[in-house]
Lab assay of single mutants.
Amino acid sequence: RPMNAFMVWAKDERKRLAQQNPDLHNAVLSKMLGKAWKELNAAEKRPFVEEAERLRVQHLRDHPNYK
């Protein structure tokens, strides 16, 4: 299953946050990521939305029978 825009963004952002906050549990990091994503405007999200769409199209090509 291809990543959605949030997952594309969160992949690198989670690493950055975890390095800055090594003692935080994953659940806390996830909440921080969700809050930060909601605060991004459409222009800030656009590159990740476009990458998610590219991944979706590639997934359809690679797995035409996937449901």
Rank of each mutant, 00 (worst) to 15 (best):
E53S: 06
P2D: 04
A43H: 10
S30I: 07
A43N: 14
K15A: 06
D12E: 12
R61A: 12
V57E: 12
R46M: 10
V57K: 11
S30R: 13
Q19M: 13
A36K: 15
A52M: 00
P64S: 11
N4I: 07
G34P: 01
A18D: 03
N26G: 13
S30C: 10
K11F: 01
N26I: 06
N4T: 10
L40N: 08
E13W: 05
L60A: 11
H59K: 09
N21S: 07
A5L: 01
K38S: 14
Y66T: 13
A42I: 05
R1T: 01
L29H: 04
A52W: 01
K31V: 05
A52K: 00
P47C: 04
L60C: 14
L33F: 02
W37M: 00
R1N: 13
Q58K: 13
Q58S: 11
L40Y: 03
K15I: 05
R56E: 09
A10Q: 03
N21D: 06
A52T: 03
K11N: 03
Q58Y: 05
M32E: 08
L55S: 07
A43M: 08
Q20A: 13
E39W: 03
A5V: 00
V57T: 14
W9Y: 08
R54W: 02
L17G: 00
E50W: 05
R54L: 07
K38G: 13
N4P: 00
Q58P: 09
M3W: 03
A5E: 04
A36R: 12
A18I: 12
F6W: 02
L33H: 09
W37H: 15
V49C: 06
P64D: 13
L29E: 06
A42D: 12
A36Y: 13
M7T: 11
N4C: 04
R1S: 08
E50M: 07
R16T: 04
D62S: 12
N21G: 04
M7D: 15
D12R: 08
P64Q: 15
A18C: 07
V49G: 02
W37C: 01
L60V: 13
F48S: 01
Y66H: 11
R61G: 10
E53I: 09
N26T: 11
Q19I: 10
E51T: 08
M7E: 14
A36E: 06
V28K: 14
P47E: 04
P47A: 04
N21H: 15
N26V: 10
L55M: 12
P64R: 12
K45W: 00
L24R: 06
S30H: 08
K67G: 11
P47K: 06
E44T: 04
N41A: 07
G34A: 15
P64T: 14
A27N: 08
V57H: 15
H63I: 05
E50Y: 08
R16I: 05
A10P: 00
A27C: 07
E44L: 07
K45T: 03
F48Q: 01
R54V: 05
L55W: 05
E50V: 08
N21E: 10
R61D: 11
E13G: 01
L24P: 04
P47T: 04
R61Y: 08
E50D: 12
P2L: 08
V57N: 09
L40E: 02
H25Y: 00
P22W: 00
R46D: 03
A43S: 12
M3L: 09
V49T: 02
Q19P: 00
R54K: 10
W9M: 02
R61P: 07
W37S: 07
N4F: 01
E53V: 02
N26H: 14
H63W: 08
M3P: 15
K31G: 11
V28N: 12
N26Q: 13
L24S: 04
K15T: 05
P2V: 08
K15G: 05
N65H: 11
M7G: 07
L55E: 09
V28W: 01
L33W: 00
L24N: 01
N41V: 03
Q19C: 01
P47Q: 09
K45E: 05
K45P: 00
D12T: 10
A27I: 08
H59E: 07
R14F: 03
F6I: 00
N21A: 04
M7A: 10
E53H: 15
V8K: 04
P2I: 06
Q20W: 03
W37A: 01
A10F: 06
M7S: 13
L33A: 05
P2T: 12
K31E: 14
S30D: 14
E53F: 15
P64C: 14
V49M: 07
Q19H: 15
P64G: 12
L29S: 06
R1G: 03
H59I: 06
G34K: 15
G34Y: 12
K35V: 08
D62T: 14
R16G: 00
S30M: 14
K11P: 02
R14T: 05
L17K: 01
K67C: 07
N41M: 05
W9D: 06
R14C: 00
A52F: 08
A42N: 10
W37D: 03
V28E: 15
Q58R: 10
A18E: 06
K15F: 04
G34N: 12
L40H: 03
V8E: 01
E13C: 06
V49R: 11
E53G: 02
R14K: 10
N41G: 14
A27P: 09
F48W: 08
R46G: 09
R14W: 05
R16Q: 01
D12S: 10
D23N: 08
K35Y: 13
R56T: 05
H59Q: 12
K35D: 15
E53D: 08
W37K: 03
G34M: 14
Q19T: 10
R14D: 00
E50T: 05
K15Q: 10
M32C: 05
P22S: 02
R46H: 02
E44C: 08
H59W: 12
M7W: 04
K38D: 12
P2Q: 12
M7C: 12
V28G: 13
W37T: 04
K11H: 08
Y66V: 15
K31D: 01
A52Y: 03
D12A: 14
R54E: 07
N41Y: 02
F6K: 02
V8S: 02
Q58N: 07
L17W: 01
K15R: 09
A10R: 02
E44M: 05
R54G: 04
P47M: 02
K38W: 04
E44R: 05
W37R: 02
E44P: 00
A27D: 15
G34I: 14
W37G: 03
K45D: 00
K35S: 08
N26D: 15
L24V: 13
L40G: 01
N65P: 14
D62W: 08
N21P: 01
V8H: 00
N41H: 06
Q19S: 11
M32K: 06
H63C: 11
M32R: 05
A43Y: 15
A52E: 07
D12Y: 01
F48N: 01
R16N: 05
R14E: 04
Y66E: 15
G34R: 15
A27F: 04
W9C: 01
H63P: 15
F6N: 04
K38P: 05
V28F: 06
P22G: 02
E50N: 06
L29I: 06
V28S: 13
L33Q: 08
K15V: 09
L17E: 00
A36D: 05
V28D: 10
L33K: 01
W9G: 02
H25T: 15
K67Q: 14
H63V: 13
D12P: 05
K35R: 13
E39H: 04
A18R: 13
V8G: 02
M3I: 14
E44H: 01
H63T: 10
A18Y: 14
P64H: 09
R16K: 15
V28I: 13
F48M: 01
H25L: 03
A27S: 09
D12L: 05
Q20D: 03
A42L: 09
D62F: 08
M3R: 04
K38R: 11
H59Y: 13
E51V: 09
P2Y: 11
A36S: 08
W9P: 03
K15P: 10
L24T: 11
F48K: 03
Y66Q: 15
A42Y: 12
L24K: 09
K67A: 15
L24D: 11
Q58H: 07
P2C: 06
V8D: 03
E44F: 03
L40T: 02
E13Q: 09
E13K: 05
D12V: 08
L17T: 01
E39D: 14
L60W: 07
K31N: 09
D23R: 08
A5Y: 02
L40V: 03
G34S: 15
R56C: 01
K35C: 07
L29M: 12
H63L: 10
E50A: 10
A43V: 09
E51S: 04
D62E: 14
E50R: 07
V57Y: 09
A27R: 14
L60P: 11
R46P: 03
R54D: 00
A52G: 02
L24I: 15
N26E: 15
Q20V: 10
L60G: 12
M7F: 08
K35P: 04
R56A: 11
P47R: 08
